[in-house]
């Protein structure tokens, strides 16, 4: 594990990403909203997620605030961010993190289009898994910027 070059920024983003991840649980973690009122967590994500119930994890009637792919992205973002102090030194001066990010983006598009034209049918779990891959790639792509360089 290496020393971080921007510890304050790292911590700030960690808090932000953790907040996004926890908020995405919606009714599952934060309870049901009043009758006729939209859940606060669903309000937060409506601009970035279609929130279709059949594409969202539901546990005992309680629904997440985001669909499975978005949940995967946020889970991956948090996991990737936690990994930065460890992954940064492997990413330093190398191109693979950006290649990994581009690959993860292409995979999302291919999976989405393949399902759209009915070449295959993706599932909630497969969408969450691919989303998590993209989330990890997003965080890891900036990991070397947080590693202190040798002078």
């Amino acid at each position: 594990m290496k020393r971080l070059s921007n510890p304050f920024l790292y911590l700030l983003v960690l808090i932000c990403v953790s907040f996004v991840f926890l908020a995405s649980f919606g009714e599952i973690l934060w309870g049901f909203s009043s009758v006729g009122e939209r859940h606060w967590a669903e309000k937060m994500f409506f601009g970035v997620c279609h929130q279709l119930p059949d594409r969202t994890y539901i546990i005992e009637g309680a629904m997440m605030a985001v669909n499975t792919r978005c949940f995967g992205v946020f889970l991956g973002m948090l996991a990737g961010w936690v990994l930065i102090p460890f992954a940064g030194s492997y990413a330093e001066g190398r191109r693979w993190p950006v290649t990994f990010l581009l690959l993860a983006i292409v995979l999302q598009i291919v999976d989405y289009l393949g399902n759209l034209v009915e070449l295959w049918h993706n599932t909630n779990h497969s969408r969450a898994l691919l989303g998590a891959l993209f989330g990890i790639a997003l965080s890891v792509s900036v990991s070397d910027l947080f590693i202190k360089r040798k002078t």
Partner: peptide
Amino acid sequence: SQVLWGIPITGILNLLSGMVGVKI
């Protein structure tokens, strides 16, 4: 409603993409 609820998440996600921009 759009502004109050929309800024935090869109802002945080673009914060991350802004860092990717710095990297690239």
